[in-house]
Structure formats: structure tokens, C-alpha cells
Amino acid sequence: MSLSAKLARLLKSARKTQVAKSVLRVKHEDTPRARSLGVLSNVFLHLHPAKINRDAVAYNYTWGMGGMTFYVYLVLVFTGALLMFYYHPSKVVAYRDILYLENDVPFGKLLRNMHRWGAHLMVIMVQLHMFRVFLTGSYKKPREFNWVVGVILLVLTLLLSFTGYLLPDDQLGFWAVTVGTNMARATPLLGNEGPFGPQLGMTPYNDVRFGLLGGSIVDSNALLRAYIWHCIAIPILASLFMIVHFWRVRKDGGISGPAPVMLESEIPQPREP
């Protein structure tokens, strides 16, 4: 008996043990039933249907952008959690932590680079995903609400990137966030330089910018707030909306296409109100 045949027999008998059966639950066979159950009975895969449109698996329809955006998000959560081991959101040590990370932590530089470029990649991919969804008309009935959830996720992605920009506490982040939050000063009604702001009693010490920064300048409170928004609040919000987004993809009838083309003569007549 050859080695590969021996290995195959060993694997087969291993699958019959009580342990393997309790873990896998589904028999590993080349049958439609086993293939379907393999997806449906797996907690990580069960957001997929058992079967999908045969033309949807080709790259050209979806560009894979939504799925890759989610994957990059997972990479960012993973690298971000590792970065948190080496970072203190305090004005005294934040910058030094980055220097330490870059120069002394094994693979620290790679870790930071992956987090940085992953973030840029996510922003790019999320825009291309939206572009594809628009071009294929996938926001149309019955998927209108999922497009709205997608827009919220786009905004959350940008906010995640923006709040992360300040954390190295270097000139680049400091001035970018200064420029960004200075605009909040001009919020109508809620900013001290915005229309009708002063009339409503807004000053640099009580307006919406003060709330964002925890002060009137980008300083230690702003760093702490950016950190908490970046590492806790927005990831939780984004995860919640992603759950809704993926759930609705399934509930709204799965992926939108490639659908058979519809002709102009087939437009249903609108019902009279």
C-alpha cells in the first residue's frame, strides 16, 4: 500500500472517531447534501447561502470589493489589537511609543505599516465597492435600505481612518486633525464661528469642536478621545452596521446579480394611487 493511500485511510478512520464527529457534525462527502450542510452548519460560513448564482462567482460582476473590504477590516482589527499592546494614549509617551514600536519591537514596523496601508486600502476598496454597487443598480428595490447602511459604513470607515490619524502624535496627524476639526468650529448653530452660533451662546469653550477635542486645542484630551473613538466606539458601531449589512444582503434576496437583463417593454405599469 502506498503512503498516500495509507494517509487517506488514516484520515478516514480519524473522521469516524467520536471527537471528530462531535466537532464537524457533518459527514465529509462529495454529495450536494454534505456541501450544503458544510456551509449552513458552520457559524462562520452560515451567512452564505448553500448555493449561489453561477455567474456571480466570476470576478467581473462584483470585483470582490465588498468581501475584500471586510477582510481588510479584519486585518485592521487584528493588527490594531496588537498595536494596542505597545501604545499609551498619553501626550507624554504616545510619540515615544511609536519610536519604540518602530525601532525595538520585533516586526513592530511591519505591524504599523500593515495597519496604515490596510486603512488606506480599506478606504479605497469601500469607494470602489460603492461604485460597483451603483453601476449594477444593486441599490434598487428591495435593497434600498442596505445601500443606506452601506453609506453609514462608508462614513464610519472615513471616521475610523481620521481618528487613527492623530494617534502617532506627530506633526502630520496633529495638523491634519487640526485642519479637520477647525471646520467643526464653523458648524451652523453649534460652532462658535458658524452661522447663528455666537447668537446661541457658542464660544470656543462650549461648542461642538470643544466636545470633539475635549478642549479648545488639539491636546492630550483630544488624543485620548481619538483613541477611544478609534479603538472602541467606532469599531463597535462599524461591526454592528456590518452585521446588519451582511444580514440584509441575504434577506434582500442574496447578491443582486448578474441578473437577466430586463427590456424597456417589460416595465410594469405603476399602480394608480
Binding site: 518602530e102 505599516n113 500593515m114 496601508w117 502624535d169 506627530d170 506633526q171
Partner: peptide, 17 residues
């Protein structure tokens, strides 16, 4: 992402001032 991160370093300027 790995190749990109190996080839190009994330920017780090002077400390915030």
C-alpha cells in the same frame, strides 16, 4: 498588504508641535 508594508514605511514626522 505584506509586500506593500515591507517596501514602504508609514510616515512619521517630528513630534506634534
Amino acid at each position: 498588504l505584506l509586500v506593500w508594508s515591507i517596501l514602504l514605511n508609514a510616515p512619521l514626522e517630528e513630534p506634534a508641535n
